[in-house]
Design a protein around this nucleic acid. Structure first.
Lengths: 145, 145
DNA sequence: ATAGTTAATTAGAACCATTCTAATCTATTG
DNA sequence: CAATAGATTAGAATGGTTCTAATTAACTAT
């Protein structure tokens, strides 16, 4: 536990900082979930998955809290929600500029570095709107080799 | 009814053709739904919406059939499913090359012509996979003017 | 046309991810 | 340490979607 928090100390501390600045109390549950989320580098997790991991790590936390926490972290800019699968949200721990490959048949998400894609021309946003972010999803399909 | 099918005859006939080639019987329900879907040009409808429209047009059809039909039309290439809103699928009658603006706060989808966006560099798909389609979603936000 | 076969439709139940509720607990502040 | 505001919780509720098993409709070959 101590070793682990040393290894992944930076993002965890960063998360606690971020929580404080957003006015979220650093509770046992939020800290444990932050650790699970950020100790590995890039992840795409569902609420159910994270809840399962927490139970596996003997962290007592309800599914409702997992949902609350994922949404709060998303609002705080610690996570990005990826809506790509009808009826299931993924949360991406990578909030930097990047895009996704998606294999629908296998529900498999993987990252595309932001610099690997460049839009040659960004169309005019509708009047009275501003562009918040451009999301590129490359739908792929496994083929027998 | 007759006038309407004359006006929108082409896409409807095309739909019937497509149905036949895919081995779907041109039933009353499928034809009525095809007419509702394709008599206007470009649309983004949910299953519930289409079901409501059918009832409004005195077409007796169950919600289950609406779902079945939307999925069958999608498999047949007559529609494209747009997954963008957690917990609700949109079906797009425009299957030609194009992308979308999405205003999350208002659940508002609008089209971006395919030629308005061009990807300068397409990243390598993971080994054993082929790119099926590239989807660009420009997330926008309304601002007070 | 008609009988037989196969596919489609249906109402309603079931499902499942997510959200809500209202009671309990915990972190913070004075 | 008490008061208060915020967080957590179990379980119920919600809502879009899918499933089930029974009925109905379209096709095929006679």
């Amino acid at each position: 536990m101590i070793r682990r928090s040393l290894r992944a100390g930076a993002p965890l501390l960063q998360a606690m900082e971020q929580l404080k600045t957003v006015g979220l109390r650093p509770t046992r549950q939020r800290l444990a979930l932050a650790q699970l989320l950020f100790e590995r580098s890039s992840r795409h997790v569902t609420a159910e998955q994270l809840h399962g991991e927490a139970r596996g790590a003997a962290v007592r936390v309800s599914l409702a809290t997992v949902y609350n926490t994922l949404h709060q972290f998303t609002s705080a800019g610690l996570l990005r929600e990826v809506v790509i699968d009808p009826g299931r949200s993924y949360f991406d721990t990578n909030t930097s500029d990047h895009h996704h490959f998606y294999d629908q048949a296998h529900c498999a998400l993987s990252d595309i570095p932001g610099h690997a894609v460049s839009l040659a021309f960004l169309p005019q946003a509708p009047d009275g709107s501003v562009v918040e972010r451009v999301e590129v999803i490359v739908h792929i399909r496994k083929v027998p080799r």
